[in-house]
Write a protein that binds this DNA or RNA. Structure first.
Lengths: 161, 161
DNA sequence: TCCGACTGTGTTATAGTGTTACGCGAGCGT
DNA sequence: ACGCTCGCGTAACACTATAACACAGTCGGA
């Protein structure tokens, strides 16, 4: 998938973008010795269909359409798996999940959520993470995981306003 | 309330710490032309009783004990009010709320959540916010609100491990 | 004084999100 | 075949949050 963090905010070859992400997912699962089973793969495809965060129950509905189980645990298990493998992220502010824009790239995700069009982009979080570690370090706190969720206006919606 | 962001992680005069926060809350509400009604005040007191995040239903139970209504909206309305006035924060990762450690101080809150003892501290987020604005600015995104939730080990629990 | 408009609190009911517990079958090594 | 683990499925439930409505108090103006 493209490394352009703003991909979510403008037109691009989304078919290729999704296909490439799936391919990377295969590789990563193989490396990690875990299986990208049909449900899991389909779940990732569903998330990749849009650069938007999807609720677990939205995903579940689509899984059910595809002939998989229709009870919540089916979706949650697949989503948790993807999150664990770094192939997707959970966005708690939205009670939702989104495909990772840069799988395999160990990163501190920073989510930019457009309040107008609901697109979600994943910005490089290196600097943010560094600042966070510093602030935490000053009071003796050691950060193991962090997640940054910012809401605002994406370029397109900002221009329109 | 003390400005020491690590207050949550060590012994301190919590009675004074809470009393001072309540006093500031009165002032801020007066300034903003809004009313710190009994339910709202009691809700803030409840949050101040511990440096931990509390679920809405925990707060609700305590409100009910104090003779207020016992239906969810009672708690949610009071909590929403406090959040709006900057007197409390919502921590989505925990589906919980916590009193603001530095009310009135316009700040980008950064929460440090200890996975061992569940204490929640609020670190100064100036630098983090700056880094975030930079990262977002590079792709044309303008951030209106951000919230940073980091999990890890607080000083005490880190030492113990 | 009376009449609205507004705000705040309370209620019931319901929607949305997430988890626990259990059974079954496929694959795998012995 | 046996027992093991893992993934998938189910039902049932627990937790979190909101919608919709009723009623009392307050305040300003006709």
């Amino acid at each position: 998938m493209t490394l352009d963090p703003a991909a979510a905010f403008h037109e691009h070859d989304h078919g290729a973008c999704a296909a490439s992400a799936l391919e990377q997912a295969e590789t990563i699962c193989a490396q990690n010795g875990v299986r990208l089973t049909p449900v899991r793969r389909r779940t990732l495809e569903i998330l990749l269909e849009e650069h938007r965060a999807m609720g677990a129950y939205d995903v579940l509905a689509k899984l059910a359409e595809a002939g998989f189980g229709k009870q919540p645990p089916v979706a949650y298990r697949a989503l948790d798996f993807l999150v664990e493998q770094g192939l997707a992220h959970r966005i708690r502010r939205l009670n939702a999940f989104t495909a990772c824009t840069r799988p395999g790239d160990a990163h501190a995700p920073v989510f930019l959520i457009c309040t107008n069009c609901d697109a979600v982009a994943e910005a490089p979080g290196g600097e943010v993470r560094r600042a966070l570690d510093t602030a935490a370090g000053e009071i003796g706190f050691s950060v193991t995981r962090a997640n940054v969720e910012a809401v605002g206006l994406c370029p397109a919606c900002g221009d329109a306003a």
